[in-house]
Nucleic acid binder design. Sequence first.
DNA 1: GTGCTAAGCATTTTT
DNA 2: TGCTTAGCAC
Length: 695
Amino acid sequence: MDYLEELNPEQRKAVEQIEGPLLVLAGAGSGKTRVITTRITHLIAYYGISPYRILAMTFTNKAASEMKQRVEKVLGSPQPDLVISTFHSFCARFLRREIGFLGRERNFIIFDTQDQTKVLKDVLKRLKLNAKEYPAGILRQKISLRKNNMPDNVFLDPDLEKKIFDRYQSELLTQNALDFDDLLVLTNQILENSDECRQRYSQRFEHIMIDEYQDTNRIQFQLITQLAGDKPNLCVVGDEDQSIYSWRGADIRNILDFENHFKDAKIIKLEQNYRSTQNILTYANRVIVKNKQRKPKKLWTKGSDGLPVSKRRFPRGIEEAESIAERIKMSGMSYRHIAVLYRVNFLSRVLEEVFRRKRIPYQLVGGLKFYDRKEIKDILSYARCIVNTRDWTSFSRAINIPTRGVGSVTLDRIRFYYDQTGDIQTAMEEALSNGVLKGRAAKGVKSFLDLVVRFRASSSTKTPSTWMNSLLNAVEYREHLRKEDVFTIEKREDNINELIESMRELEKQGVKDIAEFLDFTALISDQDQIDDSVDKVSLMTIHAAKGLEFDTIFVMGLEEGIFPNKRALEENEHALEEERRLFYVAVTRAKNTLYLSHSKRRMTYGSYFDNPPSRFLSEKSRPPINPIQSTSIPPKGSGQPHQGKAMLVGDTVVHPVFGKGTVLALSPKGLDMRVTVRFSVYGTRVFLKSKAPFQ
DNA sequence: GTGCTAAGCATTTTT
DNA sequence: TGCTTAGCAC
């Protein structure tokens, strides 16, 4: 039981409290992952509970597989029966087995946002509604809110809204497709309505653990309740200060009402932080204390004060990005230990431009997903409509790639038969035998039909990767790419090879059929795509950084309108607190060094706009400045330049961005010193001595 | 049915 | 600024 020795008393309590409902309020960096993994280990190793009876839910597949690896490492053996999974993956697997309860077929396809949009546009067209007046994006949101029983403040004629919703839903049913929300909703429905099924699962999972509990929504809560059964051995771990997904239905009441809902619930607070320096924690505490909707909590550490938090202002986004790049280069740290965070995805563009120019290797987390790339989507749409011949959405994409002479008119004709049969294969057959298709179109449809028939037959006899590879050859997809675009061909071919490679990888992990692989491609998250093996700086939104930590964190674009985000603030009166929690999450990702920055002018839609600095930068008292900092040893791995040296008027200093300059004046400012420097190119500038990166 | 050009729209956050 | 879509010529 060596593994218990590594825990502090509170953590240990959480691990040893194995019966009944337990709420662990775990502050940022307080070792909650360790608590969950150790708890699982303890259940198996000490109490001899079968891994088959344990279920743990996490937020990303990456977190799930890391947890599993940790457990396996401590136990010293692989644990194939232990289920650690995301909610969505768990539900997908559940439904692959149990969807028969709803009278539906098991070979359903999971529709992502793009597919949903396509279905909605089709629905609008058939209801003869103008797509401009009813933007698919907003409708998608409304549908999601509806499925989650959430309030909706966008007004639409209720009858019309219901009509659109019903059409959308029946279209998904016809196509045998589920959207992300359906995965949770239908799983919940089955558990609720089938006593037999619910008992089977709640009896199996004697011990349930939920990570990032503050970001679970109402449906997830119901799901947990059903699975936990009458005598819940349920351990949830979360931090209301890090709740950043209320717009997606995350319901803070799940945490706040836990004690009321589960009688005799125990509560354990973890406040000791193992991640960040005291300066960073002090800053974080001062940020979050402004929020009213929270339980009092204060992070502390036994570690050193570390460096003060740096705040900097730049004329434009370019200078901001260049300064970040210079600091990264100067620090001499491994790139993999550094991340740049921002509120909105479009801010990554400046960074990418500058990093590429300065030859700083980076990986963009989020944005366009690997499986969302055009060439990958093309191939997957083939596979999808072959696996599930009711998938019209994928069929209508696949049939004319490469061009087979099938355009919108031909597609409409096939759709006529699809509406009667609900199956693309029979629809094609009937369209052909009834002679409504002629010439090139008929030939094209015939060849596609043959392809579907042939590959349906071989889908069960070949491994997914070999099946996919021969599919690629059969449609001559690589040749098609070569014709389409000479400039991007290399990258696209690489991506296709990577797709096959990722299938082989999953086969090794036990994925044996294509449907399962397709689930994987739909449910992959941004974080899942982070490659830890390469030495690159990570660029991502703060949402994507949830649960991660880095030695050095840059938070950029701290400007009113961007962060806090204008659109978010328009939503409701609680939005500002959520933005502040988001800022808190950003700050607490940093282990050693934290840089905050904003720019006066920001390029948006191709032209410049002026934004005042974010209120988050000024609404708290001064950042902590440690008076004895010049003699304290900087934490390992941080690359902060020397700051304690005496500086005199007339000295020459070198600034990473502005270059060589001469010190014109020095004046005290609080505990710090104001330094005026004249640069040959950039003119005269004023710095705070403790924060200026002079060499 | 395909392919080109110009206009117009986009930026909250994601499984 | 950069991407998608509508409209038009072939």
